[in-house]
């Protein structure tokens, strides 16, 4: 009974499903990178989508080859990306807050404002205000005349 089953076909089908799901997540997160309104929202959407998509694609590859050494390497890549992706996101997000990258105008920043004022960072929390300031700076710049 067990010899009649084509194991290669089953592995191919599982691998196909995993790869298609992973590629779908990657595509959606790339679309999100293009059309979401604010840097922080983009960042939090991208980190999740990419990590999950990459994990699904790589595990699909590991299942297709069915060899221990490849499975080990794939697991190493997955664990590494699951550890490093949030760390990189945290570092970039922290840098963005300290560099006054503006928030979306619908974002509620009540609990952050106190902290920002304490650190002398709270000038441009609002995106509209930031754009107005940019325009004023451009008007006042001496190179424009």
């Amino acid at each position: 009974m067990l010899e009649n089953i084509d194991w290669l076909l089953i592995r191919e089908i599982i691998s196909c499903v995993l790869i298609l799901t992973g590629v779908l997540f990657m595509l959606i997160s790339t679309l999100g990178l293009l059309r979401l309104p604010d840097f922080y929202i983009r960042m939090s959407a991208i980190t999740k989508g990419t990590t999950l998509g990459l994990g699904l694609i790589l595990s699909g590859m590991g299942i297709y080859f069915n060899q221990p050494d490849i499975l080990l390497k794939v697991l190493a890549i997955i664990v590494f990306s699951f550890i490093t992706a949030p760390v990189a996101a945290h570092v970039v997000g922290r840098t963005a807050v300290q560099n006054k990258i503006p928030f979306w105008d619908r974002t509620k920043t009540k609990e952050l404002n106190e902290y920002l004022e304490q650190e002398n960072l709270g000038e441009h929390v609002n995106r509209d205000k930031y754009i107005e300031d940019l325009k004023k700076k451009k008007k006042n710049a001496p190179g424009n005349q």
Partner: peptide, 20 residues
Amino acid sequence: PDRITAFDLFVANVIGMIAI
């Protein structure tokens, strides 16, 4: 920072392409 995020996504895409 937007460009850094895009760079991160580049690397992830290329890893996926290598896997396929």
